[in-house]
Amino acid sequence: MHCAPMCGPFVLGQVSDRLARIPAARLCESARLSSALLLPYHLGRLSTYAALGMLAATSGDILASAAPLGMLPALLLLLGALLFLGHAAGRLVPRLRPLIPASDRAPAAWVRGIARLTSGIDRTRPLGGYLLGVALGFLPCGFLYAALAAAAAAGNAAGGALAMLAFGVGTVPSLLAVGIAGQAAGYAWRRGITAAAPVVMLLNAIILGVLAWQRFAALA
């Protein structure tokens, strides 16, 4: 619901590059579908998310041992809930958007650095697609921050990696749809997505909030 409009252009650009390199005599529906799947790119993103989850959970575990009464995991879950709640509120009440931090905007230097890293990648080849996914996995995203906050409360590196893998897998279907059906998919589903997105975000906020409350209650 969030990835299609934000990351869809990266997918469409790769699909266009791949299709442009297929000879007209070999251009068929199966070739179009194989070009649109971009599996190496998605595997690259998942690799980055898993690594970030491991790092977040390891850091959270180290800090939790020093935090008063082990409150850090509960606070991290609460932070994830608040981030999801903020996104939901911004969609339900547009007037609140200026009050919500723009967590999807990266510093210009960060964007230029990623652009330089990816400029020489041949994204039409599997290895190039994988490396592009690895690099673009570091782009800022409010939902990524919320997922990392929850993953940091996992308590161990394996749990953090699995949590972020689950998050990454959840982002794949909408991007696959954009790659296969093009930007028209986003336009066709926009009304349904606009209605459903705040509800899904609120559910995420509630789940993380309940988990945070359980952690706080266990410390009481």
Rank of each mutant, 00 (worst) to 15 (best):
S34C: 06
S35I: 00
L37P: 02
L37K: 02
L38C: 00
L39V: 09
P40E: 00
Y41M: 08
H42L: 13
L43T: 01
R45E: 10
R45W: 07
R45D: 04
S47R: 01
Y49E: 06
Y49A: 10
A50W: 01
A50F: 01
T58H: 10
S59I: 12
G60D: 13
D61I: 05
I62A: 12
S65F: 12
A66P: 03
A66W: 11
A67V: 08
L69T: 09
G70L: 06
M71E: 09
M71D: 08
M71F: 10
L76G: 03
L77Q: 12
L78F: 05
L78Q: 05
L79V: 11
G80M: 13
A81L: 07
A81W: 06
L83A: 11
F84D: 04
F84P: 00
G86C: 13
G86L: 15
G90E: 02
R91W: 12
L92K: 10
V93F: 15
V93L: 14
P94G: 10
R95A: 14
A102R: 13
R105A: 13
A106E: 15
P107C: 10
A108C: 07
W110L: 14
V111Y: 06
I114D: 03
A115L: 09
L117E: 10
S119Q: 12
G120W: 11
T124V: 15
P126T: 03
G128S: 03
G128M: 09
G129C: 04
Y130H: 01
Y130C: 05
L131Y: 00
G133K: 00
G133D: 01
A135M: 08
L136D: 07
G137Y: 04
F138Y: 12
P140S: 15
G142D: 01
A146M: 02
L148R: 03
A149R: 05
A151Y: 04
A153Q: 08
